[in-house]
Simulated scan of single mutants.
Amino acid sequence: MKEGPDISRLGALIGDPARANILTALLAGRALTASELANEAGVTAQTASGHLKLMEDAGLLWRRRQGRHHYFALAGDEVGYMLESLLGFAAGMGHLRTRTGPRDDAMREARVCYDHLAGAAGVRMFDSLVTTGAIRAEREDLRLTDAGRGQIAVLGIDPASVDTSKRPVCRACLDWSERRTHLAGALGAALLDRIYDLKWANRAPEGRAVLFTSKGRTAFEAAFPLG
């Protein structure tokens, strides 16, 4: 490629199976140590260290230091959006893992996508916000309406807190399992935090699944009705 941004370097970095496993593990939004990521990637600590250095230098990862310990996280929102889009494309093209497990159904139902809600629950929440007029959607151009500001205030979210964020208030993110839009951006993150605060759901001890309680599921569906 002679002109424009060079995607070949990023493609090569993400295309390595071990590095892809590291990146998707970090989509859970948690910062992990090099040894934890080596386990996720199925490689030795030394090999993982080399992978992490390459991805840090490329701007995909952020190394966080706390005392003697080093933790790694995705470098920012854009990396998360890129990875979720790639997962959606891979799923749409039939490039699926051959092994499935008991966590797969939970992941498809509700999961963390970097810092917002994805899966069937995330798509339901987005569809409800559009249907009720809280979000005006023109393809991928999303706007929080005045009615929407009132709606999130009822849920206990200060509308000013999402307006003053440096991030986009609303952003469309293609869900890899549903292949439809779920809500990202400052509002998507605030809504997931509020779901946790209200005890409607909790993070699974491992992985990216978000587990709703029975009462929490009822409250969630009442807050985000369809039709």
Rank of each mutant, 00 (worst) to 15 (best):
M1A: 08
M1D: 00
E3T: 03
G4Q: 02
I7H: 02
S8L: 13
S8R: 13
S8P: 05
R9F: 11
L10S: 14
G11R: 07
L13H: 01
I14A: 09
I14V: 14
G15A: 12
G15D: 05
D16N: 12
N21S: 14
I22Y: 00
T24K: 08
A28Q: 09
A28N: 12
T33K: 08
A34N: 11
N39T: 13
E40Q: 15
A41H: 03
G42N: 01
A45R: 09
T47N: 11
A48D: 12
A48N: 11
L52H: 05
L54W: 06
E56G: 06
D57T: 07
A58V: 10
G59H: 05
L60A: 10
L61I: 13
W62A: 14
R68Q: 10
H69E: 14
H70T: 15
G76A: 02
G76I: 00
D77F: 05
D77Y: 09
E78W: 14
G80P: 10
M82D: 08
M82A: 15
L86Y: 08
L87Y: 00
G88H: 10
F89H: 11
F89N: 09
A90T: 13
A91Y: 08
A91R: 12
G92A: 14
M93G: 13
M93Q: 15
G94E: 12
G94P: 13
R97T: 10
R97I: 09
T100W: 11
T100L: 12
G101A: 14
G101T: 15
E109I: 01
A110T: 07
C113V: 10
Y114K: 07
Y114S: 13
L117I: 00
A118I: 00
A118D: 00
A118S: 04
A120N: 01
A121G: 01
G122D: 00
R124N: 03
R124Y: 03
M125Q: 06
M125C: 02
S128H: 01
V130F: 04
T131V: 13
G133M: 05
A134I: 04
A134G: 14
I135N: 08
R136L: 12
A137D: 10
D141N: 08
D141M: 06
R143Q: 13
D146K: 14
G148N: 04
R149Y: 08
Q151T: 12
Q151N: 11
A153C: 07
G156L: 08
G156W: 05
G156V: 08
I157Y: 06
I157M: 09
A160C: 03
S161Y: 05
S161F: 07
V162K: 06
T164D: 14
T164E: 15
T164L: 14
K166S: 15
R167T: 10
P168S: 07
V169K: 06
C170N: 06
R171W: 10
W176F: 07
R180M: 01
G185T: 00
A186V: 03
A190Q: 02
L191Y: 04
L191N: 04
R194L: 05
I195V: 15
D197G: 10
K199P: 01
W200Y: 02
W200T: 02
G207T: 13
L211R: 02
K215T: 14
G216H: 10
R217F: 02
F220W: 00
A222F: 06
A223V: 01
A223G: 00
A223M: 01
F224N: 03
P225G: 11
L226V: 10
